[in-house]
């Protein structure tokens, strides 16, 4: 019983409103608005730097979004850690390769799902950067 109460999802209106308050506090304290996609540009630049530092340094987009760890980079890392802590604390952590809804339509193959997810991630990120976040 304690298990089910612990794992019960929070009301989305209240959780969403709290996220709004968190945003307002963040803007007040540091002037930072929430975002995630720029971090992937910086991380990609950091990876590319290890093999082609000069090339990265000469690319206009990496001059605009320098390959370094900043507020948003830590924010995205924090999201992962906060979710991990909440999942473990509420007993809702599940190692899972294929989502139920996906499996019911496209089958249980993890390889196929990973391929679709990888492609989707690449397309989504290109679009997000084109639209500027």
């Amino acid at each position: 019983m304690g298990e089910t109460v612990r794992g019960k999802p929070w009301n989305p209106y209240i959780a969403g409103a709290l996220a709004g308050l968190l945003l307002v506090l963040s803007v007040y304290a540091t002037g930072k608005y929430f975002g995630a996609s720029t971090t992937f540009v910086r991380a990609a630049g950091m990876i590319e730097q290890t093999v082609a530092a000069e090339r990265v340094a000469a690319m206009p987009y990496f001059m605009k979004e320098a390959p370094k760890i900043d507020w948003q980079w830590m924010f995205v890392a924090g999201i992962l850690l906060g979710s991990l802590a909440a999942a473990l604390g509420s007993g809702t952590f599940r190692l899972k390769a294929v989502p139920d809804l996906y499996a019911s339509r496209f089958g249980p193959s993890p390889g196929k799902r990973f391929g679709v997810a990888f492609l989707g991630g690449a397309v989504a990120m290109f679009g997000a950067r084109l639209a500027d976040g």
Binding site: P9, L18, A19, G82, S83
Partner: peptide, 8 residues
């Protein structure tokens, strides 16, 4: 933010 996202 991650806690709110996961729990909701």
């Amino acid at each position: 933010f991650g806690i709110l996202l996961q729990r909701a």
